[in-house]
Simulated scan of single mutants.
Amino acid sequence: MKNTTKTLSLLSMLLLFCFALGTTSTFAQDAEKDAKKQKKIAKQRKQFQKNKSNALSEMYKTYPESKAKMGSSYGYAAFANTGVNLFVLASGNGGGMSHNNATGQELYVKMISYGAGVGIGLKKYFAVFLFEDKAAFDNFLEVGWSADGQADATADTGKEGEGGSAAVGMNVSRGVTLYQIADKGLALQATMQGTKYIVSEELNGK
């Protein structure tokens, strides 16, 4: 009887040990997954911040008059996507940030591409939306924005050998002006179709 009780006690201790070991291992795995996820989010946030800065620099360089328009705008959203054929499929690098000029608040916004063959051969693309008022700015953040059916433009590719980028700016909806800069020779109309801009809940911690 004593031996049986002792055996049961040892088995119970062994089971508790195994359970504790398994729980610890699960926690460790979950912690590792969470750490990798947070690292990925931090990397993407840094990339989007860089995209915003680069897009603004390209806009000011290509459109010197945009500085005055920026000064009178309620807010803006600036984006970049760089690399070969990034518009064929959704790219983790495609995105940027919105900025409220009235409050200084910024949000991370993703570019989502959904259309086979869109932007084939594209190596760099920058887009900056300037919003005239709060209504236009809020609508962009709450609803998102899709180029399909809202704008239609083709870039002036310039003369052969000039170098630089082709660019075109346009009013794309009420209170919204879009500036685009892309590779020389690329029709910007192709980069707009099949691209949607939406606020990223994950990157904004929501």
Rank of each mutant, 00 (worst) to 15 (best):
G94W: 03
F48D: 03
T24Q: 03
F27R: 01
K206N: 13
G185K: 08
E202Q: 13
F129C: 01
N3R: 14
Y63I: 06
K184T: 15
V109I: 15
A102Y: 11
Y197K: 08
C18I: 09
L15H: 01
Y197D: 00
I41P: 03
A77V: 03
Y125W: 01
Y197H: 10
D30P: 04
N3C: 07
D148G: 01
L178F: 12
A28H: 02
A35G: 12
Q105S: 05
V128F: 00
D133S: 08
C18H: 05
G194S: 04
F17C: 13
G71F: 07
N93P: 07
N101D: 00
D34E: 14
F137N: 07
E106N: 05
T7S: 12
N101I: 10
F17E: 01
D152V: 01
P64W: 10
A136E: 08
L10Q: 04
F140M: 00
A190E: 08
E201G: 15
E32S: 06
S73L: 15
Y197E: 04
K36L: 15
T195P: 02
S91Y: 06
A147Y: 04
G169A: 10
L14S: 11
K184M: 14
F131K: 09
D30V: 13
K124S: 14
G83W: 03
L141G: 00
E132F: 00
V176R: 03
D183Y: 12
A190L: 11
N85R: 11
G94E: 06
L15I: 01
P64E: 10
L186W: 15
V176A: 06
N81D: 08
S173Y: 00
G115M: 07
I41L: 12
D138K: 12
F131Q: 13
Q44V: 05
S146G: 08
